[in-house]
Nucleic acid binder design. Sequence first.
DNA 1: GTCTATACCTGGATAGAC
DNA 2: GTCTATCCAGGTATAGAC
Lengths: 201, 201
Amino acid sequence: MKTSATREQIIEAADQLFYQQGFAHTSFSDIAGVIGISRGNFYYHFKSKDEILDAVINERLQNTQDMLDMWEEAASTPAARIRSYIHILLTNRDKIMRYGCPVGTLCGELAKLDHCERTESIRLFDLFRTWLRHQFTQLGHKEDADRLAMHVLAWSQGVATLANAYEDKDFIDQEIQMICTWLEAYTPPAKRPQHSSDALH
Amino acid sequence: MKTSATREQIIEAADQLFYQQGFAHTSFSDIAGVIGISRGNFYYHFKSKDEILDAVINERLQNTQDMLDMWEEAASTPAARIRSYIHILLTNRDKIMRYGCPVGTLCGELAKLDHCERTESIRLFDLFRTWLRHQFTQLGHKEDADRLAMHVLAWSQGVATLANAYEDKDFIDQEIQMICTWLEAYTPPAKRPQHSSDALH
DNA sequence: GTCTATACCTGGATAGAC
DNA sequence: GTCTATCCAGGTATAGAC
C-alpha cells in the first residue's frame, strides 16, 4: 500500500467532503480545491473516483478499528465500553447535527446509487456490530448479544438522523440518557456498584 | 394549483425516482424515460428541477396528512394509532430494505446538499411528530408527549437505516415487537383490556 | 402542450509536456 | 509527480417549430 504524501492528502480531503457533501455530489474539483492540486493529478494516484471511495472506506475501517481497540482497553467493564460507543453521539454532536452519521449516511447513499462499494461501506457497521455484540456477550447475554448490538446501533442511528433534521442538541442529550438507563437493565447487579454516576465520563 | 395530466405524471415519477435513486442522482432523462415525454417538455410545467422537488415534497406532505387522518379515525385508541405508525415499517418493509425511509433519506440528502428545500422536507417529519405527540398527549403524557414522539420517530428511523444496510427482515420484525412492548408501558392499564393480541392488526 | 435542436456547463477521464 | 490541454458523456436549461 503506497503512502505518498499527496495520496494521503487526497484520501483525507475526500473523506471529509464525502461526509459533508455526499460522495456523488463531491467532484474532483472540490477535492483539488481543498488540497491545492490539479484535477489531472488524481489519475497518477487513483484509476477512478470509485477507487478513491474505496480508499476512503478502507481508511475509515482502519480508524474505526483503532478506535474500538482503544475503547477496549480504556474502559474496564463491558457496560462502560458500550457507553464509550454511545458517547460519540456527544463527541461528534455538532457534525452529526450538520451532516448526520458518517456511516449511516454513506451506506444510505451507496444503497440508492446501487454502488459496488456498498458492501464495503456496510463493513463499517459490521465493525461496530461485532464489537458491541462482544460486549453484550461479556455482559452475560449470549443468546441476545447480536440482537442487542443491532438495537444499540439502530438507536444511535435514529438519534443521528433526527438530530440532523432538527439540529437539536437537547434531543441528543435526552436520548443518550435514555440509552444509558436502558443499558443498566442489561448490566448484572454484581458488576453495578455505582448506578449512573459513571454514565458518560 | 394546476393539475394537468402530465404535470401529475412528472410529480408521480419524480417522487418514485427521488426515493429510489436520490434527488441529485435523478436526471430529467430518467423521469422522461419513465413517463415517455421529452426532456424539453419539463419546462412547460416547471421552471427548474428544484421546482419539481418542491412539488414532490408538497405531494408527499398531502399524502402523509391524508394517511394520518385516516389512521386517526380508523384506530379507536391512541395506542392503536401509534401502532398504525409503527406498522408502516412492516407494510413498506421491502422498499425500506432497498431504499431506506423516504423521509429520513430525503432530509439527509438535502442536508448534505445544503439545498433550500431542506426545511420543506423536514415538514414531513413535523407531520409525524405533531401527530404522534397528539397521541401521547391523549395517552396522558402531557409533559413528555413531544419527547416520546421524537423517541418513536428516532427509533423507527434507526430501524429503517439498519434494515436498509443489512436487508434483514427478521430484524425489522424484532424491533417492531420491541416498540410495541415498550409502548405498553406508556398505555394506561384502564385502557388496556387486551395486551398484545391487538398489536399489529 | 409537446416536440426537436441546441446552447452551455460540469463531470470524470486521457494524453502528453515538463 | 505534477501540470495543462483536451475529450467526451451527461446534466440543466433555452429557443423555436409544430
